[in-house]
Computed example of a mutant assay.
Amino acid sequence: MIPEIRRQFNESFSTERYEAFLAEIERDFPGQLDFRIAETPVFVPQALKIKLLQACNDIIDTIKKDDFKAKTDRAIPANQYVPNEDKHPNFLAIDFAVCKDANGELTPQLIELQGFPSLFAYQWYLGQKYRKFFAVPKNFNQFFNRLNMATYVEAMRKVLLGNEKAENVILLEIYPEKQKTRLDFEISKQLWGIEPVCYTKIKKNGRKLYYEKEGRQIEIKRIYNRLIFDDLLQNYPDLETEFKLTDDVDVKWVTHPNWFFRISKFTLPLLRSPYVPESYYLSDLKEYPADLENYVLKPLFSFAGSGVKLDFTKSDLDAISDKENYLIQKKVKYEPIIEDTEGKLIKTEIRMLFVWDDAAQRPSLVTNLARLSRGEMIGVNFNKNFDWVGGSCAFFED
């Protein structure tokens, strides 16, 4: 995206350096890396950075509206409603494709958004490794709002731990040691002292929750929630546990599970911005757009992209009986703009990561992650056997 910076990076790149980069991660965390890391970070110019910030502000303005909760109540399935919801989520992740507008200028287009945490610890770590092994200019930063490596850790500590001791805060997952994101869990434990605890291991006594560590029973006062309800129901439908997510208990959720549903695909038709593709609830359409080939069909309630259709017809839409559970969204054309060492171009997606302290009026942008793709879509299934693809970090021009 910045020709001179890209040229300098590519000239300094070597397969040996990339292999040393991966080898150090393996030494730091043996057997924990379970996804592909791209050979390059993403270098974001000032002009695109400004547009990304404006796009995020447009979206946050909608989330902050007084009627947002009322408009998204239907997003929460009745059997998955969790009591004691906060007034806003503690985390926000907003994904943008990097595209070009009609004038040939780089522009972001919203792909997805989540009221749910992401790889906050891992991205802190990954950015350091890119800087150590590759040519990353000093005037490019992975952090925002004047944060640096140290102050980022402290800002996250405040949101995650609040005023509690680290041992009274857990990271909740189902079988965390088996998850692809387990490296992030391990780094979270090292940075903030938060123990990853399996959903099946939580004990309940009245309204209190506990976990066991080194023979001690420890009360849980805050839950850094990384457990996705949909994943639990789809993969472990008959799981018996002492604690149910829907129980009314004396814990503070960080972030509350209801926000996973409220801020999701369900939110897309509520947004208005030049950086948000047109989206419509299927049930709201009195007639379909004439150019359906330029839209994608998405189920409102699905996980990890399941059920998404890139090609469909009017007849396909007519055949859907529960139209209230689907939306159509204008297709986004990713622009291949990152050049590899052979001159081939790669697409990228940037996730802007926010924290939202309980007392704050608006969320605070803290860091990001990036993903690179040569396939039709971003994701592992579309990028098998390719190089210069996978997870990455964006460095923004100051």
Rank of each mutant, 00 (worst) to 15 (best):
F29A: 10
P89S: 10
R36T: 12
E24W: 00
L33A: 07
K51D: 04
E16T: 06
N90W: 02
N79D: 15
D61Y: 05
V82K: 07
Y81G: 00
T15W: 12
D66W: 02
L48P: 09
Y81D: 01
L113R: 03
E16W: 05
K71A: 09
E4V: 11
I111C: 06
F120P: 02
L113T: 01
C99K: 08
Y122A: 13
N139G: 01
V42S: 10
Q32Y: 14
K49N: 13
P117T: 12
R27L: 08
K65Q: 15
I37C: 03
R27V: 04
R36L: 13
N57F: 00
D86M: 11
T107N: 08
R7C: 07
L113S: 06
D95L: 02
E11I: 12
R17A: 14
S118I: 11
K87R: 13
P89K: 03
Q46P: 01
P3S: 08
E26G: 06
G104H: 08
L48E: 08
K71Q: 12
Y81N: 02
Q8N: 12
V44F: 11
T62S: 01
A121N: 10
F134R: 08
V98H: 05
Q114D: 10
E19I: 04
A97W: 11
D66M: 01
F13M: 10
A102Y: 14
L106Y: 15
L110N: 04
K64L: 09
D66I: 05
F21M: 10
I5F: 02
K69Y: 07
P41T: 06
E112P: 01
A75Y: 02
K100R: 14
Q109R: 15
N57C: 00
I25Q: 07
C56E: 09
A121L: 03
D34H: 14
G115F: 03
K65W: 01
L126W: 05
F96Q: 04
F140Y: 15
K129N: 05
Y81P: 00
P83R: 03
P117H: 06
I111V: 11
Q80S: 13
K51F: 10
N103P: 02
G115W: 03
F134D: 12
T107R: 13
L110D: 06
Y130K: 04
E11Y: 10
S118A: 15
E16Q: 14
P108K: 08
A102L: 14
F21N: 07
R36N: 11
D95M: 02
L106D: 05
S14W: 11
L106M: 14
E26Q: 15
T62D: 00
S14N: 06
N90V: 00
L33Q: 11
S14R: 09
E26Y: 05
N139M: 07
Y130N: 01
P45L: 12
Q114C: 09
L110V: 02
N103V: 00
P77Y: 13
K132G: 04
A78V: 12
E26V: 08
V42A: 11
